[in-house]
Amino acid sequence: MSGNSEWRGSVELGALLDAARKKLESNWLRVGGNITVDLSDAPELWRLCSAISRSNSSLHSRARSTRLDLERFDAWLSHPLNGGLGLIDTLTSQAPLQDKKRIAADKAQVRADALDRARDVLGGGTDREWIEHWIASLLNQDGTLGGRVAVDALEVATKVLAMLPVDGMSLTELAELACGDTKALSAGGAPKLVLDALSLRENVPRPVDPVGIRALW
């Protein structure tokens, strides 16, 4: 087994670690499966892959690419001659690993929860049609909350819509009553979401001029 002193700091080992990081970060940080290695990335990459895989080096020297088993790579790195740290620990020592699958799943759950809260908050009224049309306008084809809709803006808009209609109240007063923040309707996506909902409720085109916007509010 090749000693780590030969490969430590080499472009060859760096290329394998970079490829392994991408694989792990897109695979729940699971050490499993294979990575495809472009052998042109470094002059002796075929030799390192051959040492790790314990395969025929002449095959690697002629090949343009090869597949490297991550469990074998993990075992190779864990050997005392090669540093004694497994793949996860080796990569973490360079820079923190990001579990991109978990991050994406958590974000998706946050958006799903926000959508459920919007339905719950607005679900008590007798006039459901405009609510369903409004919510449908926020969704992707798969029924998830569209990426253009910010979770915070949706929550503000939902709280405001639940308070309407009110008479003789400014937007700052409405924002404070609904959200506890006088500036909740002064910027961001919430005002647009509310106007979209109101135009559906009143069955009128969404206004774009200041006069029409004030009238709809």
Rank of each mutant, 00 (worst) to 15 (best):
S2C: 04
N4G: 03
N4R: 14
E6I: 09
R8C: 00
E12L: 03
E12A: 07
G14C: 07
L16R: 13
D18R: 14
E25C: 04
N34Y: 15
T36Q: 10
V37T: 05
L39K: 07
A42E: 11
W46T: 00
L48S: 09
A51W: 03
R54Q: 14
S58D: 15
S61Y: 14
R62S: 02
S65K: 15
R67D: 11
L68T: 02
R72C: 05
L87R: 13
L91F: 07
K100M: 12
I103H: 13
A105I: 02
D106F: 11
D106E: 15
A108N: 14
D113F: 02
L115F: 11
A118R: 05
V121N: 00
G123N: 04
T126E: 15
E129Y: 07
N140T: 15
N140E: 15
G147V: 02
A150I: 01
V151M: 02
V156C: 02
A157R: 06
V166T: 08
M169F: 00
M169Y: 02
L174K: 04
A175D: 04
C179I: 02
G180M: 09
K183C: 00
G189P: 06
K192M: 04
A197N: 02
L198D: 03
R201P: 00
E202G: 00
N203W: 06
N203G: 01
